[in-house]
Nucleic acid binder design. Structure first.
Length: 379
DNA sequence: AATGCGTGGGC
DNA sequence: TGCCCAAGCAT
């Protein structure tokens, strides 16, 4: 059923939705830490952290980030590496860099706080349509409707709109509906209520329609199969790569290098390595990649651990090799800032998850001075 | 408009 | 296990 045959959003239906959903929200909303804050900066951090990230993860990480960077000035005054370290493990690291850059932009412009206006927020790095509306409404009470994945699911079902949600026409329909429904005097609560409904009752697979405050007016439920919505195109298969990297030791210290700021895992540190080419052995790939990135010719490698890891759009197996550096200083050929660091310094650097997991396995398998040495096989 | 960008949990 | 999904953004 398409939206064209959906019952129009008449004023009575809108009033009913607002009243019923807000009443339900007041009674059933989860006790989330950021809901106790009225600080626009803290709310902003929570919204950025929540982008494509589970509430249960943010529940733990948001207080720690706020303790580390309590206000706009603290964040703006930090180094990018410090911010990335606080973001380690959260993924989508570009978010952290944009958060930092936006804070610096604001402070340099003499601002003591975030702007309250949706359009002004939208102009800052890392503020898309969603985050601008979320901060404007939740922190400043502005009547700006949010549209996130929850809202798409709740409203396509509410309207029984079976259009492809990646198309502009459906996006516009959902945005317009979200804005029409928004309770203007409780904009922040309303937005959170729709998202809360999507997160707890109107879930992708097994919605609890019997408990839904919108069930009376839900066209998707009336049509019988709300779980078929929202409609989205099938995902393409994700490729797999083998990555070979070196744990390159010199005098009890380990070689690490920083990834370039843009792209995958931008700004994080890693052990030099890269993709194995077709027909190439893992050890040959390890040797080639270490040389290409740092200029160091490193022989005599011994395989020590392999880690399977899934990124958003491909999967890898990370194969690590213990090896010993010969003479010569590493150069920033195809990496940034290569350096040997002590094992006790590893905790100071932001590493991608796969690297961190490899270190954990090695430490569990052996210990100092060479993080185990022998072969440890993770999965 | 289509892609690239992390990670962890659920089934 | 493999796939989907989660309070998106930038290019």
């Amino acid at each position: 059923m398409t939206a064209t045959r959906t019952a129009p959003l008449d004023p009575a239906r809108i009033r009913r939705a607002r009243r019923n959903l807000l009443r339900w929200y007041d009674a059933h909303k989860r006790d989330l830490p950021w809901r106790h804050s009225r600080d626009p900066y803290a709310i902003w951090v929570s919204e950025v952290m929540l982008q494509q990230t589970r509430v249960e993860t943010v529940r733990e990480r948001w207080p720690a980030f706020l303790a580390r960077f309590p206000d706009l000035a603290a964040l703006a005054g930090a180094s990018e590496q410090e911010v990335l370290k606080a973001w380690e493990g959260l993924g989508y690291y570009r978010r952290a860099r944009f958060l930092h850059r936006a804070a610096q932009t604001l402070v340099e412009g003499g601002a003591a706080c975030l702007p309250a206006d949706r359009e002004a927020l939208r102009a800052l790095p890392g503020f898309g349509a969603y985050t601008a509306a979320a901060v404007a409404s939740i922190a400043f009470g502005q009547p700006a409707a949010v549209v996130d994945g929850n809202v798409y699911r709740v409203l396509t079902r509410y309207l029984d709109d079976d259009g492809d949600i990646t198309t502009a026409a459906v996006k516009r329909r959902i945005e317009d509906t979200a804005q029409a429904l928004l309770a203007p005097r409780r904009a922040g609560d309303w937005n959170q209520a729709v998202m809360e409904l999507g997160a707890t009752l109107c879930t992708p697979r097994r919605p609890r329609c019997e408990a839904c405050p919108l069930r009376r007016d839900c066209a998707g439920l009336a049509a019988g199969e709300p779980t078929r919505l929202p409609c989205k195109p099938a995902r393409k298969a994700t490729p797999h790569h083998d990555i070979a990297a070196g744990l390159v030791w010199r005098d009890g210290r380990l070689l690490i290098a920083r990834r370039k700021a843009d792209g995958l895992l931008g700004g994080l540190w890693e052990f030099p390595g890269g993709k194995r080419r077709q027909g190439e052995s893992l050890e040959a790939a390890r040797r080639r990649e270490v040389q290409e990135e740092t200029g160091l010719v490193v022989e005599q490698a011994e395989p020590c651990v392999s880690i399977d890891h899934a990124y958003s759009h491909f999967r890898i197996t990370l194969h690590l090799f213990h090896c010993t550096a010969g003479p010569g200083e590493p150069q920033a050929v195809a990496c940034e800032d290569p350096r040997f660091i002590g094992v006790d310094e590893l905790a100071d650097y932001p590493f991608p998850r796969a690297n961190r997991r490899a270190l954990d396995l090695l430490q569990a398998g052996g210990g100092a001075p060479d993080l185990g040495g022998g072969a440890v096989h993770g999965d």
